[in-house]
């Protein structure tokens, strides 16, 4: 453990970018936790007298078409955006790695079914599939999470399957089997934990993509409904005003989105260096 910490410090020291990303990640989590209490104004209170005001000392990020404070809305939205992507990634991580690990470990029919399912999902352009799922299941926030989880599922399933497959015949597994452990126990106690590090890297790289997908869905009007503050829908609301030069409505939520994705991507790269220095590209 202390070796890992030392290695971690080394990676952060060598890699200031990762350190910055880590700092940003902490800030994002804090904002998600306490964002609403930091908001200077009520994110839902409209004031048509002050609509479309550019950024000022009173409204740092300006106001939108109905006079709501954009800074407050961006701050408050952090929690929702992170919640959607985190729960989607967690869901696909748990379900996907479970399916993939069983497929890799048991082989046979389990393997064939899981492979067929993941191949079928991958046969669709993924964002289009997410659209179709939300359209079919109903236009709700929960379904956005499910759709995002489903299109992420194949990555985890395939990775878990490959990782377990490699370790299935390893010496320590053979030893566990000889000492009378059942298959389920071998898989959950001996094999799967060893596959976790690379899976965690995949998860952190996936978070950014999950946020982008969820925000894309709400940008086209699925899932989140106005006036709920959410970055994707806020950009969509600002889109109409870009051509007339009111840039701030779309810019700030867009920047927030970009920063979050950027942070997760850098963090994923850093985590990969931490866990497997050889796979650096």
């Amino acid at each position: 453990m202390s070796a890992l910490l030392r290695h971690g410090r080394y990676v952060l020291g060598e890699n200031p970018v990762t350190a910055v990303a880590f700092g940003l990640f902490v800030v994002l989590i804090l904002l998600a936790l306490v964002g609403p209490s930091l908001a200077p104004h009520d994110p839902l209170a409209s004031d048509t007298a002050r609509k479309l005001e550019p950024p000022s000392a009173r409204y740092w990020f300006g106001t939108d078409q109905v006079g709501r404070d954009i800074l407050s809305r961006v701050l408050v939205a952090t929690r929702l955006d992170l919640a959607i992507s985190l729960s989607a990634v967690t869901l696909s991580f748990v379900v996907g790695s479970g399916l993939g690990a069983s497929a890799g470990f048991f082989g046979g029919w389990t393997d064939r079914i899981v492979t067929r399912v993941t191949d079928t999902i991958m046969a669709f352009p993924l964002f289009v599939l997410a659209m179709a799922i939300v359209a079919a299941l109903g236009n709700t926030l929960a379904n956005i999470v499910y759709a995002t989880a489903i299109i992420n599922l194949p990555f985890y399933a395939r990775m878990a399957r490959a990782e377990v497959n490699v370790r299935r015949e390893a010496g320590f597994v053979e030893a566990a089997r000889l000492s009378g452990n059942g298959s389920a126990r071998i898989l959950t106690v001996h094999v799967f934990p060893n596959c976790l590090p690379p899976m965690m890297v995949q998860a952190s790289l996936n978070l950014g993509w999950a946020i982008l997908n969820a925000a894309g869905l709400s940008f086209i009007g699925l899932g989140v409904r106005p006036p709920t503050p959410e970055w994707g829908i806020m950009v969509a609301e600002g889109a109409a005003f870009i051509v007339s030069g009111e840039w701030w409505i779309a810019l700030f939520p867009g920047l927030a989105l970009m920063l979050a994705v950027f942070c997760f991507n850098l963090l994923g790269d850093g985590l990969r260096d931490l866990i497997d220095p050889r796979r650096r590209t």
Partner: peptide
């Protein structure tokens, strides 16, 4: 490349419109 994978595509589009049209 890092910007490319981090920029929401609809946001990039809007930025380009703002700069090159407006």
């Amino acid at each position: 490349t890092t910007a490319g994978v981090s920029l929401p595509i609809f946001f990039t589009g809007l930025l380009l419109v703002y700069v090159f049209y407006f």
